[in-house]
């Protein structure tokens, strides 16, 4: 029997800032093609965990493997497999939409044809000549998503991909992410939105104070905890709501 290597494997990971443990011993494994939501209030440690998975900061303890590869020794190979969409990242405001896409495609060795594909996928064809600083928040978020998937990554890590966008733009982004899921991409996303997690993810991981409180499918979690919603469940487990 062959054992499948998980897309993301986080083992006993700890990250401290001074005396504060932002991530305090997390184990998490995400299978290929699986879609997982990290859910938790601000300060729960989601972004720190995601930044370690993205290789932006090293863990103080433990190990993170992406598709079986270690950040310590195979960072270059991992970056080709991983697409990232960072929380609040500003795109270069004085570049046009298509110029930014061309730039990010070039990071993955992709040319103009990929730019056209992306413009079509994220529905930014009409805005292609506009400066990134002049487009709407929803368009900017779709542009950031397009940059993240410029290299057609196997694994996509998204830190609050729909925060700060209007409901219509959120639904557009959901549509794009559902399309990526359907093509077999592994998805890890942090979010404050329960409906987003329920709709897009196979599994939900609840985080608080740098630790994983619970994980499972939404129905499993609600049944196990005897709660009517994920927010209620979180309130019972952590004593506070996810969005306060």
């Amino acid at each position: 029997m062959t054992e499948t290597v998980p897309s993301i494997h986080v083992q006993s990971v700890v990250k401290r800032y001074g005396t504060l443990a932002a991530v305090a011993g997390v184990d998490l494994s995400i299978a290929k093609g699986e879609s997982v939501a990290l859910l938790g209030p601000n300060g729960a440690g989601k972004t720190t965990l995601v930044e370690m998975i993205e290789g932006l900061i090293p863990p103080d303890e433990g190990e993170i493997r992406i598709d079986g590869l270690s950040w310590k020794t195979q960072a270059g190979s991992i970056r080709g497999k991983l697409g990232t969409c960072l929380q609040d990242a500003k795109l270069p405001e004085r570049l046009r939409v298509e110029e930014i896409l061309e730039l990010f495609c070039s990071f993955h060795g992709r040319g103009r044809e990929r730019v056209e594909e992306l413009l079509l996928l994220v529905e930014l064809g009409e805005a292609r000549r506009q400066l990134a600083g002049k487009i709407s928040g929803g368009q900017r978020q779709r542009l950031a998503l397009a940059c993240a998937i410029a290299g057609e990554p196997d694994i996509l890590v998204l830190d609050e991909p729909t925060t700060g966008v209007d409901p219509a733009a959120r639904r557009q982004i959901w549509g794009i992410l559902e399309g990526l899921r359907a093509r077999g991409a592994t998805l890890l996303m942090t979010t404050h939105f329960m409906d987003e997690a329920e709709r897009l993810c196979d599994r939900v991981v609840l985080m608080e104070s740098g630790r994983i409180l619970e994980q499972g499918t939404v129905s499993e979690l609600l049944e196990r905890g005897g709660a009517s919603s994920l927010d209620d469940l979180f309130l019972r487990l952590a004593g506070r709501r996810i969005v306060e």
């Binding site: 290789g55 932006l56 990232t84 960072l86 609040d88 500003k90 795109l91 990010f104």
Partner: peptide, 12 residues
């Protein structure tokens, strides 16, 4: 502007 980390997360 968090662009450095955005670029750092790419294969470049």
């Amino acid at each position: 502007r968090k662009l450095l980390r955005l670029f750092a997360a790419t294969p470049l």
